[in-house]
Write a protein that binds this DNA or RNA. Structure first.
Lengths: 371, 371
DNA sequence: GTGTGTTTTGAATCCAGTT
DNA sequence: AAACTGGATTCAAAACACA
């Protein structure tokens, strides 16, 4: 097929010709060549427009492999906004009236995408937070760990009736309603595709678990899912596995090659195999600081060791000052008092309530019960 | 005070007059009456119900005057964008060059706020997800549970140096770096303010735990924190408790009343509880040469890298000569040995005392203890 | 194979003070 | 103003190495 925009009046090519293929070329041109109102879902992971300055090293002096690819370079917000407007309106044209779109991004670009979605008349259904269980830390200690990315799920219009498999998502979530925050690990290990040198084939490969949840929740088997920034084809691989049809668009030949091979090796699951690997539910960690933030303990309040020998005062940042001016976490101060190498502060300290000592662990239990 | 915009050339009123008060009136007018570059932090939770009535003007500057005033979706976004632009630029003017701003919103408005922040030259530092531990479920089962809201933390410019209490936040999070996703319960129970009928006093009262984390992390005691959409004064209550100064602006008298009473009952914590964990960066610098001058290390003495691979000799001027005849500071020689771009010599080198390797950092600690 | 310790790595707008 | 330099800074998971 050609990548030329459709001429006015020319019959749009049938969708069947491009079903379950990867089209080469610019995604706007390719989308413009497809028939309007023909696609059930669009999943788009466009360049984020990161603006990285110098190099970044980890504390052990190793260099961080940055996303410095040419396709992520834009001269200004104006240029990026035009790009966003153009590909979104091309996507909008080919979407069925009851179709939906997902976009994913970070704070660098997601606000601009969200605003443009709204400007074009898309109707936002949810924003979804992908909370990474193993994000890259902030090595210089100058910011918060950038531990999430944002997805936006939107229908073509306010009155549309997009597919939403409520019960399937509820089942995925151990029987309770699926929330707008999804805890999933980043793509590593065997799932992460490598090139012939053993380097990562694509700098920003998304985990299949993310696409799995998107496709299970917002498409049906047989639906057509289009990904205009196909990369190494995670969308296509998961779509094939789940019995959905995909259309990929990708400019870079190297990515297309990797994706083609990858998808060829995917086998469609039998229906019974659609059971999902659930993220293990470990006992969630509760930082002591949360008791302070939540007002369960007040800064300045006295804590008492359960053995009755020591006291310490709570500070606003969740650390303690012991009566010997020893500062640190509940564990550190406890250990210092006991001259022990370590100490479980949760079982060491108590607060006073109506004159009685109550272990602070009770407060932790309370928080866990809410989670 | 009056709410008129400041006339050109008129002296801006001193900030002291409004410190720890709640100003009535339109937040844009009040902010315009304050001196520029005077506020350390702005926390803003703007309305986004698109029924802003008197607060809003159409793009052609005609006033939107009634609840049932009909405007189409495009109009309403344009109106909201203008409102956002106006209050953000008023906020920008009064912010100190190294000040910062937090805004909070949901998918209805946060993308527009984020884009406008960037357009005005604010520099996004993080977006933060407030993950609600007890959100309202989606009753109709047509969407995901809307279980989070988004905050954006931004400095006034790319080159600004905003306050960030890295160690304090790390302490709040049980010793690991604070992430961009914050799990906190919504505001309920005793904390939720009620009116005389027992109904909630404000529809979107934010939890104090959220403000606690914001203020501990990005302000210092004595800073000035302004909240242009004060509501029932959560920002003021937490600011007072944590020894920060606040300026509230609120147009609704009922909210001002509730907030005034609420804040009056708050007691400032004593200074000891307000002290938070300090970064090493805050500690005084000790030149390595001082160890030599003070005779803690002798010129000619051998140093050993803690990894056991390299040695170097101390020279009288506090530089080293490595075994490869590489000369320079403790950092430079360490970096040369490791072929690394940089090296912290304090943690790289050790001297021998009674046959045992002792990190030279111990000697620095000793000096700092005397200071 | 099994268990244990070490190394590697991930969409990152990641320094501050002095000369 | 630009260049230099001291020195502060990381978490989880998987791969890998080795006993």
């Amino acid at each position: 097929m050609t990548n030329k925009p459709v001429k006015k009046g020319a019959p749009a090519p049938s969708l069947d010709a491009v079903l379950n293929t990867i089209q080469s070329g610019d995604c706007i041109e390719v989308m413009n060549s497809l028939p309007e109102n023909s696609v059930d879902l669009i999943f788009a992971d466009p360049p984020y427009n990161l603006q990285l300055k110098g190099e970044l090293h980890r504390p052990d002096n190793s260099k961080v492999d940055a996303v410095d690819d040419h396709w992520d370079q834009f001269d200004s917000f104006a240029v990026y906004d035009r790009f966003t407007r153009d590909w979104l309106s091309a996507a909008r044209r080919i979407l069925k009236p009851n179709g939906a779109i997902w976009v994913i991004g970070s704070y660098h670009n997601v606000f601009r995408m969200g605003a443009e979605l709204q400007n074009q008349g898309f109707w936002i259904l949810n924003d979804v937070v992908w909370r990474k269980s193993n994000p890259m830390p902030n090595f210089r200690g100058k910011r918060l760990t950038n531990a999430h990315e944002t997805l936006i799920w939107a229908s073509k219009s306010e009155s549309a009736k997009p597919t939403f498999n409520y019960e399937a998502l509820k089942a995925l979530n151990e029987g309770v309603q699926m929330r707008s925050d999804w805890v999933l690990p980043i793509c590593t290990g065997h799932e992460r595709l490598k090139d012939e040198n053993g380097d990562k084939a694509h700098p920003t490969q998304k985990p299949e678990s993310l696409l799995h949840r998107v496709l299970i929740g917002t498409t049906n088997p047989g639906d057509v899912v289009l990904d205009p920034f196909f990369g190494t084809g995670t969308t296509g691989a998961v779509a094939k596995m789940l019995g959905r049809n995909f259309i990929g668009i990708e400019r870079e030949e190297t990515y297309r090659k990797v994706a083609t091979k990858r998808i060829k090796n995917v086998r469609k699951l039998d229906n019974e195999a659609l059971e999902v690997s659930q993220s293990k539910r470990a006992q969630p960690r509760v930082p002591f600081g949360q008791l302070v933030e939540r007002g369960m303990l007040r800064p300045g309040e006295e804590l008492y060791s359960l053995n009755g020998r020591h006291t310490a005062k709570v500070r606003a940042d969740g650390t303690l000052v012991g009566s010997k001016d020893n500062k640190g976490s509940i564990h550190q101060v406890g250990a210092a008092f006991e001259g022990a190498p370590s100490c479980n502060g949760w079982t060491y300290w108590a607060y006073k309530s109506e004159g009685k000592k109550v272990p602070i662990d009770n407060l932790r239990q309370q928080i866990r019960a809410e989670m």
